[in-house]
């Protein structure tokens, strides 16, 4: 069994090379050269807290299962901060007079890409599809929820507002904002991640709220509605 594990691990290490050879060469070259210093392109996700703390940017080895390509291409040309307190908030906070505050001097802006680079990198990122076994393709069924009910669920019933902003300047700061999530993230990925965050990222500081399937659907309805509202 141990021999088998070593054999499979060797394959895992070689895998990115084989996948990268499939195309998207220009984008993949850019990713390797300019992005791999801050982003993990190969995985797996860290299994220790120290590994989570060392992260400079989000893991990208499952970017093709996570992001919407149209959003990626636009964002890479005009990046804005998604995680108000950085990847691990503990590295970017300090004590203030009324409690902990973000130390913005520790946060670095994301580099801007030109249109051609953004297109190439987006194509390359969409080819990185680890974690497909965690996603039920087509699980999300489009539907509607009133903003009032969505906000009630997100805040009062489930307490998610504690860590996530639902509009700029309103909500928690340690997690990514969710007001652009509907444009940013694939719906089936959102369901999978909310269902079991640790399946994607074993030591991430997001709890598993054991949400029911129908609530997972409603949350995605809410995020899509929030994103639509945010665009106006």
């Amino acid at each position: 069994m141990e021999h088998c594990q070593r054999y499979l691990l060797c394959w895992l290490l070689l895998l990115p090379v084989a996948v990268n050879a499939s195309g998207n060469d220009a984008g993949m070259a850019l990713l390797q050269k300019d992005c791999s210093g801050c982003h993990d392109l190969t995985g797996p996700a860290p299994t220790t807290i120290a590994g989570v703390w060392q992260r400079q940017g989000p893991d990208l080895f499952y970017a093709g299962n996570k992001y919407k390509p149209a959003w990626l291409k636009t964002w890479l040309q005009k990046p804005v901060r998604i995680r108000p307190a950085g990847m691990y908030y503990g590295r970017h906070i300090k004590e203030g007079a009324d409690g902990d505050v973000i130390d913005s001097t520790t946060l670095k802006p994301h580099p801007r890409l030109n249109g051609e680079q953004a297109k190439a990198v987006t194509e390359a990122l969409m080819s990185l599809r680890a974690g497909s076994h965690l996603i039920n393709e087509g699980e999300y069924k489009p539907g509607k929820i009133s903003m009032a009910m969505g906000e009630l669920m997100f805040d009062k019933f489930r307490g998610c507002l504690a860590c996530h902003e639902i509009e700029e300047g309103y909500g928690g700061l340690s997690g990514p904002e969710v007001y652009s999530a509907g444009n940013r993230l694939q719906e089936d990925f959102m369901i999978s991640y909310m269902r079991d965050p640790q399946a994607w990222d074993p030591r991430i500081f997001m709890p598993n709220k054991h949400l029911k399937d129908r609530d997972l659907q409603k949350f995605v309805h809410f995020f899509r509605a929030l994103a639509a509202e945010n665009e106006q």
């Binding site: 307190a85 300090k94 507002l161 860590c163 309103y170 909500g171 928690g172 340690s174």
Partner: peptide, 12 residues
């Protein structure tokens, strides 16, 4: 950071 209940998320 000091456990006093005033974490970075407390604002809202």
């Amino acid at each position: 950071m000091t456990g006093n209940g005033n974490g970075v998320n407390v604002r809202d």
